[in-house]
Design a protein around this nucleic acid. Structure first.
Length: 580
RNA sequence: GGUUCCGUGGUGUAGGGGUUAACACGUCUGCCUGUCACGCAGAAGAUCGCGGGUUCAAAUCUCGUCGGAACCGCCA
């Protein structure tokens, strides 16, 4: 028999009346009425009210001390029932009270209000912060989410295989976390940025469907939606499958996951598919929020010979919003201010008046033909407003139009806040012109299969070569990246050649994969879901750190454990490291 | 690496040249037999992140520095 408790603090109900019970937990609070005292006793499972009649029993007991009590379960008077807690119909009258663990110091903050405390203090006393039921619950849900994903993948016939954490540095991608080798002077291990190479090697090893709840490590700066250092992916790969097959898995797993753990509606059925280029035009981003009904159109042609200099020979994008022509000037001025805040010179717009005439700062530059074209192109009607975003560079015009679209969505509250809307972004270009070198380079994953295989690489314009690669985006957040992998060495060589790499380069940098492929490898396809970011959305948090028990802060430190820290001279010597 | 914002009792905030540095919660003491954000009375607790400058006078203005957050870069 457990000496600390017969029951948890979350389970006693009217059914347990008159039972002699033992409970242990943290003291959440004491209400002393002189002659009768109430203790809120809290553990992982919940809260129970303990009644004490003898104040000498409370010696040394204060908030957050750990106590054990024995006593009888009694019914509360009807007018003293607390409906906020599951045990609220009963209370335990304490016969004995034992202090199991004292608090040495005054608390740095009140546990049940810890979410209001600055993050650096919370993380310094994370163990107290995590006692807060609201904070605690996130970690419990995270655990359940891992269970759910694991079960779901197994249900679909995927096999969980763990891959090395101590591995080697790979030349592409993010900065690695490196570990000095003791036995191999001057050589280093590295933590994996993702299990990419290993999961493809598993395919070459004849495993059919692999998955892993994989820790990934990248030595890059964080954001509110990006953890510093380590994060988890639901990583998967399947053999003898094409893009349709893996997309089907996406549609089976992710909405179910969001339905199970989220509080919102989830889009039913197949995800909408949007080709990358269409997304960049219509939404100004490769991760569109489809809850926003506004779409961007290109009107460059209309203004090709306009007298309005900023629009002439520029990329001009437009967003039409119906029924807002009557908004006051201040409303439009706010939008102009926003445009300036994102480094746009301004934002032009025209409004359609009752008599179908146009008004607005741009109107005087328009010819009758311009007006006619805009009416038909944008579908203008009485009450519509058409906003213009222009720039000489297409990428800038596109991006700014996307930001304005987002801002209009927010300002006009066009989004359904009770919805998770998924879509696929497809038809990713294989290559792009690098802004740094001006040369052709891979746009995303160089191991993706060019659509159409080897033949596709013959295309005279390499920018028209597409990869069988896709993202899953939900409410404007990129959650998943997936692709058909390039499993054929000769195609791989050709694809790398186009980007200026030789076969020797591949052998040097990706020897394991290249060698494995040359011994035969089934066609395979895979993807990975960012679990932490998904949880952030599901828990309705605006910071990913809320989904992890012990996150690093933005500066890559854990102030609680003192991470990173210095190591001993001996450790340095054994690993052949000399500090400068 | 860059930009912006923020550093005031334990916590959260107010105060924007002269204040006894204010308020709420917490802590401590006393009172209270039905509270659950208990209540009442009282007390302790702050060199206003640190360093320089301006000024008769700086928490307040200014420069620097340190720390934190958000964003940009970065994240195949």
């Amino acid at each position: 028999m457990n000496t600390y408790r017969t029951n948890t603090c979350g389970e006693l109900t009217i059914k347990d009346l008159d039972k002699e019970v033992t409970l242990s937990g943290f003291v959440q609070g004491i209400r002393d009425h002189g002659g009768v005292m109430f203790i809120d006793l809290r553990d992982h499972f919940g809260m129970t009210q303990v009644v004490v009649h003898d104040d000498s029993m409370l010696k040394g007991v204060s908030k957050e001390t750990v106590i054990k009590i024995t006593g009888k379960v009694v019914k509360r008077d009807v007018d003293t029932i607390n409906k906020k807690i599951t045990t609220g119909e009963v209370e335990v009258v304490a016969d004995t009270l034992e202090l199991l663990s004292d608090t040495a110091k005054a608390l740095p903050f009140e546990v049940d209000e810890s979410k209001k405390v600055s993050e650096d203090v919370r993380l310094k006393y994370r163990f107290l912060d995590l006692r807060n039921p609201k904070v605690h619950e996130n970690i419990v849900i995270r655990s359940k989410a891992f269970d759910f994903l694991r079960n779901k993948m197994k249900e679909l016939g995927f096999l969980e295989i763990t891959t090395p954490i101590i591995t080697s540095s790979s030349p592409e991608g993010a900065r690695d976390f490196i570990i000095p080798s003791r036995k191999h002077k001057g050589k280093f291990y590295a933590l994996p940025q993702a299990p990419q190479q290993f999961k493809q090697l598993l395919m070459a090893s004849g495993f059919d469907k692999y998955f892993q709840l994989a820790p990934c490590f990248r030595d890059e700066d964080g954001r509110s939606d990006r953890l510093v250092g380590e994060f988890y992916q639901l990583d998967m790969e399947m053999a003898y499958a094409n893009q349709e097959d893996i997309m089907e898995v996406a549609e089976q797993v992710f909405p179910a996951f969001f339905k199970e753990f989220g509080k919102r509606k989830v889009t039913e059925g197949h995800f909408k598919r949007i080709p990358y280029k269409e997304s960049m035009l219509k939404y100004g981003t490769d991760k569109p929020d489809l809850r926003n009904p506004l779409e961007i159109i290109d009107v460059s042609e209309v203004f090709k010979e306009t007298e309005f200099r900023p629009f002439r020979d520029s990329i001009v994008r437009a967003i039409k919003v119906d029924d807002i022509a009557s908004k006051p000037n201040s409303w439009f001025n706010e939008l102009v201010d926003y445009a300036k805040s994102i480094d746009m010179p301004g934002i032009g717009y025209i409004t359609v008046e009752e008599d179908k005439s146009l008004k607005g700062p741009i109107n005087k530059f328009l010819t009758e033909e311009n007006r006619k074209n805009l009416f038909s192109k944008a579908g203008l009607k009485v009450g519509s407003v058409l906003f213009f975003i222009a720039d000489k560079r297409e990428s800038v015009a596109s991006k700014n139009a996307g930001l304005i679209r987002d801002e209009l969505g927010r300002k006009l509250d066009l989004m359904d806040h009770n919805l998770f809307e998924f879509c696929f972004i497809t038809d990713m270009p294989m290559y792009e012109i690098s802004e740094i070198t001006g040369k052709l380079d891979f746009m995303h994953n160089p191991f993706s299969m060019p659509r159409g295989g080897e033949e596709a690489l013959e295309n005279e314009n390499p920018l028209e070569i597409y990869a069988d690669q896709f993202d899953v985006v939900c409410n404007g957040v990129e959650l998943v990246s997936g692709a058909v992998r390039n499993n054929r060495p000769e195609v791989l060589v050709k694809a790398f050649n186009l980007a200026g790499y030789t076969e020797e380069d591949i052998k040097k940098k990706f020897n394991a994969l290249y060698t494995a492929f040359s011994y035969g490898c089934p066609p395979h396809v895979g993807m990975a879901l960012g679990i932490d970011r998904s949880l952030m959305m599901l828990l309705e948090e605006d910071n990913v750190r809320e989904t992890v028990a012990f996150p690093l802060n933005q500066n890559g430190e854990d102030v609680l454990t003192g991470t990173p820290n210095e190591v001993t001279e001996l450790q340095l010597r054994e690993t052949h490291i000399k500090l400068r």
